[in-house]
Nucleic acid binder design. Sequence first.
DNA 1: TCGCTCGAATGAAACGTTTCACCGCTGTCG
DNA 2: CGACAGCGGTGAAACGTTTCATTCGAGCGA
Lengths: 347, 347
Amino acid sequence: MSSGESNRRTGEVSIKDVAHRAGVSIGTVSNALNRPDRVSSDTRSRVRAVIDELGYVRSESARQLRSGDSRMVALLVLDIGNPFFVAMSRGAERATREHGLGVMMCHSAQDSEAESLYLSMFAEQRVRGVLVTPADTTGANLLTFRRHGIPYVFVDRVVDSDDACSVSVDDVAGGELAVRHLLETGHERVAYISGPSNLAQCTDRLVGARRAIEAGGLGPESLTVLETAKLDVASGRDAGARLLGLRPRPTAVFCANDLLALGFLQAMFDAGVRVPEDIALVGYDDIEFAAAAAVPLTSVRQPAERMGSTAAEMLLRETEGDPGHEHESVIYSPELIVRRSTLPRRQ
Amino acid sequence: MSSGESNRRTGEVSIKDVAHRAGVSIGTVSNALNRPDRVSSDTRSRVRAVIDELGYVRSESARQLRSGDSRMVALLVLDIGNPFFVAMSRGAERATREHGLGVMMCHSAQDSEAESLYLSMFAEQRVRGVLVTPADTTGANLLTFRRHGIPYVFVDRVVDSDDACSVSVDDVAGGELAVRHLLETGHERVAYISGPSNLAQCTDRLVGARRAIEAGGLGPESLTVLETAKLDVASGRDAGARLLGLRPRPTAVFCANDLLALGFLQAMFDAGVRVPEDIALVGYDDIEFAAAAAVPLTSVRQPAERMGSTAAEMLLRETEGDPGHEHESVIYSPELIVRRSTLPRRQ
DNA sequence: TCGCTCGAATGAAACGTTTCACCGCTGTCG
DNA sequence: CGACAGCGGTGAAACGTTTCATTCGAGCGA
């Protein structure tokens, strides 16, 4: 009715409408928004008023197209059903938001196809950077990003340092910590319930477990490995059932993951096997629910939230100028939290 | 070195480079990508080859700017630390991806400021639609979306149907279910541990609880309400400590949330109070960890994943044409899952 | 052979910003 | 009094797509 709405159909109001209505040029509106100091306080407030009146919202795609930089960071985790990754995300999100950027969180469900789908979506969006917990041979997918100069940081995965930054925890040390503890509490037949063997986390923890066995003067036959398809509670239950069929039955179990351990615990309950009296149990990640479990879980703690924030900060540092950027790898140390599930055996 | 890279600095290769290199016009490349049938199979394959060779990735911002439609749906949940919302997200994500769209997941951490920040980010992105678990008086924030014609669907919250679609569970019925069960197992002094009172979920469940008390022929003094600041494990522990000071002490507790219940359970353990012998306990949501808890939790189950997928489908239906769209509200029924935490008292 | 249709490809306009070179005005300094 | 700096503002180009009207041939029926 009044003056200058350009696009009556969609109801979209553009910077042009604001300019017209405020009686200034387009450039001035843009300046009022992005460099308020370049504009007299008089027009500035007039522009702001018109913006409110018209309900103008700047179009991010136009902004990004022209200015070339994105305000969005992508975060791709293996499994959002795992509280460990959730904690990590929280850290990453906090750090990112402190820099005024948004986070786009996705999870690959440990599925390599979904992963590559998301990664190409990120590439099309020209995100500012990517935090990624690699599922598979993510390398091929990430090539696109290198090509576009989009930086990425690996989380929960060590990586050759000339490729990208990474934040991780020493998984070998973690595995060793767990199994050494089991040996020290008097066990000699240990099972390792691993996730899928294409995950570096799982295999590294196995290496550590083997190292502890060896250091304890035991033979490799003292360690049985059960592989599972996923790192979740259901897989833990399955593995529990399988383990009960083993002869001789291990007296201690180390799970690659707290979710597996919780599932395993349920299977033991259902079968009437007591933890820790009949079987001792160690998990990994020390998620919040480990302490609240039927039998509170001994677990290897990782500084999840810190990992996320550190990774985000590394990414942003790489992003913000810093021409002579050197990729670096931060490696945290795991910590063993002892609870009831590994109470020492009565001799 | 060879022919036509336009932008040597950034390494960005645009549709123009592809066109030049393939010896066709820009429009043809675009058609090869978006309407392959409009282009001869000969040129189509040539274009595809060049795209691979050059590593071209289409710019989503340019696409969106010109064509006006976004390929992204936003999902804003209250608390991603709550497995209930994670399950919901998973359902929403699956349904959305089946329609070829991406999901941008964020969580407001029950913080109204963060919520409005994210919502305005979504608006600037001109997302295709928004799935939102409203924290506060989200209404004001959502006004922007209405103005821009961006549809939104409420999840886990009923709402006046002429405003938007919604998917929820009957929280009053859930609260009633829980408390009725407690009364039926012989309790007469019940406590309700509520989350923040600005969450409709919490207050609705309270209404249900009161209704059950009344239906059981008890007076309102039989129900004590303890409010907590958040819906998480730590708040549950706090509430547990507070509850132990109450005289007379309730013999049964209904928590607005499984996280609260798990925290509460820990507090009871620490204090040497037995569940269910001394205090019976009911949670809400039936998250995966409820069954694995120290004492397996009786809980009110909600179809989380289904809620997410339904909400996404409603949103997409509203999005995809469908001119005479009528907002609708789907309300699911909760279900009581009885476990050990409410084993009947020995008379 | 002429007119027509149809398929394939082209060229340019448009989307909503940011950015940059430029302009006019007002003081101020020499 | 003239040059000049600086402020506040303008106008237009450019970003990388999609889309649409148009063109160009080739095939074909009359």
